[in-house]
Computed example of a mutant assay.
Amino acid sequence: MVNDAQAERMKSGQGFIAALDQSGGSTPKALSAYGIPPSDYSTEAEMFDLIHRMRTRIVMSPAFGGDRVLAAILFEETINRAFGGKPAADFLWHDKGVVPFLKIDKGLADAADGVQLMKPIPELDALLDSAVQHGIFGTKERSVIGDANRAGIAAIVEQQFEVARRVLSHGLVPILEPEVTITIPDKAAAESILLEQITTHLADLPDDQHVMVKLSLPTVTNVYRPLTEHPRVLRVVALSGGYTRAEADALLAEDIGEIASFSRALTEGLSAQQSDAEFDATLDRAIQSIYDASVSPTAP
């Protein structure tokens, strides 16, 4: 059963989504950017302990709260851990007013037809049951588009909606994330095909079901406006996709109706070596700039 208060917050609240879902493959790079090199840990368990400390420092900061951060996406391992002595998802919602989401994909398959589908997600239903028990509102699942290949993009969107239907059956709200690589030469064409495919699949959703969509910042400003206005789409969110925070903020501020869901751009400038005061001030500036880009412009 979808939490009505959280659903209303995600539908009409002002702010952005903090993507705190770095997984096994992306964690070493995130830690290095945070000032913790691979030489500081020797096992996967140590690595996950260190990234959890970083996440804990972020969410426990006075700069991080529901006044500007609508939601946070968590890695599966995180929901079994605690923030401030409380279960992670409970702390986010009850102490910070931040809606908890869960990353459920298991990484990317090998490239074919210009795209990378999601790898199979074993025991998906058990994972979704666990998410419900932990008070998670929704999920996020990522695949990647590397070419304006119609067959490949169609396969990506089909798989995204197949997973989304299973998520919806558990009373959770899925975030579909078919990421378009920002460096490809035919990015605008890929985004046009992607919009067409998503729109087609949305038409098959029942009236009482809603999804969210997480997309790369588009080449053509407001190309995804039809999705932000679609009755089956709760929210359209943008990933930073390799842009610096300043670049991502500037692009996002031009797109009506989209809000941020940044990961690396959110943590840019944070360091394990900073004092608490320096850390909190740096995070506050990052949150404010992303918030400002997410609430502007508004539709006429």
Rank of each mutant, 00 (worst) to 15 (best):
R9K: 15
Q14P: 01
A18Y: 10
G24M: 03
T27N: 01
P28S: 11
P28C: 12
L31H: 01
S39P: 09
E44T: 15
V59I: 10
M60T: 14
M60R: 15
F64Q: 04
F64K: 04
G65S: 10
G66A: 02
F75M: 13
E76I: 07
E77Y: 07
N80K: 03
G84N: 02
V98N: 05
I104W: 00
I104F: 00
I104A: 01
A109F: 05
A112W: 01
G114F: 00
G114S: 00
Q116S: 12
K119S: 07
P120S: 08
P122D: 09
E123T: 00
L124V: 11
D125E: 07
L128Y: 11
E141F: 11
V144C: 01
A151F: 07
I153V: 08
F161K: 05
G171D: 10
K187I: 12
K187L: 13
A189G: 09
S192Q: 15
S192A: 12
L195S: 05
Q197G: 01
I198N: 08
T199H: 13
D207R: 14
Q209H: 12
M212Y: 05
Y224W: 09
T228Y: 05
E229Y: 03
P231A: 09
V237R: 03
G241V: 04
G242W: 10
E247Q: 15
A248T: 11
L252A: 02
F262K: 03
F262S: 04
L266F: 04
L270I: 06
S271R: 10
A281S: 14
L283Q: 02
R285I: 05
Y291Q: 09
Y291T: 03
D292E: 15
S296T: 15
